[in-house]
Nucleic acid binder design. Sequence first.
DNA 1: TCCTCGAAAACAGTATACTATTATGTGTCA
DNA 2: TGACACATAATAGTATACTGTTTTCGAGGA
Lengths: 240, 240
Amino acid sequence: MTAPDFERIRPIETANRGQSLRRQIYQDLREKLRHGEIGVDEKLVDVDIAKAAGVSRMPVREALLQLTIEGHLVGTTRGFALPNLTDEDVANIFEVRKLLEPRAVANATYDLDDAGLQRLRAAVELTREAVAKGDSEALSEANIMFRETWIAALRNRRLAATILRFADQAHVVRRDTLGKPDTQQVVLDGMTSLLDAFERRDAMAAHDRMVAFVHEAETSYFGGHYAAKQDKQPGDPSDE
Amino acid sequence: MTAPDFERIRPIETANRGQSLRRQIYQDLREKLRHGEIGVDEKLVDVDIAKAAGVSRMPVREALLQLTIEGHLVGTTRGFALPNLTDEDVANIFEVRKLLEPRAVANATYDLDDAGLQRLRAAVELTREAVAKGDSEALSEANIMFRETWIAALRNRRLAATILRFADQAHVVRRDTLGKPDTQQVVLDGMTSLLDAFERRDAMAAHDRMVAFVHEAETSYFGGHYAAKQDKQPGDPSDE
DNA sequence: TCCTCGAAAACAGTATACTATTATGTGTCA
DNA sequence: TGACACATAATAGTATACTGTTTTCGAGGA
């Protein structure tokens, strides 16, 4: 186990905007998870995070529990950590994404406003630059920016929250696939064609291109990937 | 506000099977919610439930938070309560259900074993009797039994958990629709045709019949239902 | 009667302290 | 050297106590 990097947990400023400590800790950790700042061999312990943030255990514990309920962490007897997803887990996540994201992106072509469209263009531009440089870090960031933008536009907030949950759970997929140059080009092409559909507000085109996009991500992941199966994780607590 | 009926919160037996108190409280409340035993005007307060169960506030509080994160409750400044779903909320829930359930039930035709099939038959039989007597209470129970059975069979546990979450959130739908005799017959017909698809292990038939089934539930709800829109609820905490 | 203000109650949120469990290391014996 | 028992530490889980905020309710005045 790598020692957690407490430097990265920022202390809670006293002049918080009325938000609960739990929520602040939650959002901080959620952001770190989304950007891959938590290593797979890192363990998250409430007392350590609490000390770094200058608060007590309880709000931290509740934030960690929330992340566990949402599937972003698993709780063990010795701290919380990233789930060790088996191939079956990843396949299950992809199955749900394939059901939700095509329809959602089609809806988003109606729901997105001009500012959002502008952000999508910027994200694609950043992606183009990242691919040109082979910078998988920047590619990942641009990828997240693109996804967050169209999902944020969705009027159906339940659908949006569910998609974000599942898409972020597949962090191993991003880590394992965004490094390869050929995959990078596929990602760029996919985002470009999605942007085109958004520009034309063509819902069905967006739908079909998202079907292809998610499918390519899945085959890319399972393509050169025949690692030994890990042991099954303890189940999601919400799954009684 | 109706005074909560503490009689219904059963004390935690000392010889529990190693499960955490949080989980026991959670499952108890989850079951009550699923079977409609919590009234819309009832407020759930941690100290009260804790006193009834003979435990401290914390495990109860964490169970209530989990139910809130999952969308089954909303937290207010004065206790937790059922969410007051607007028509838009219900429409959003139906949109997600329409995306997930047809595919899921198709998968279930493969995943279900003989014992499960037997339970489906029993549920349909109970439904038939309930409709004959016009007993909407028994109809609701049979309905839940049917749904729980095929969902429990799903190999994709993430998909199963997500469907259960959304289906159970629509408790207002059940309450508002299962009373009408014509709706009761529609429910019975839908379950019968789904059972038929399961008997023949016909995945596509199950898919198409679930499409029709969910669609009928939606139109039935919005049919005679033009109540005034309620105020918007505070958002789901998981929705940053 | 109705409105305003203030006090008190009810509740969520947070802090601290205690307990139970489990992994880990350490020593002893075969 | 290896296996097994035992002690120790690390950490989740639970209990209790404190704090801050919002609602409720009642008193006093217009």
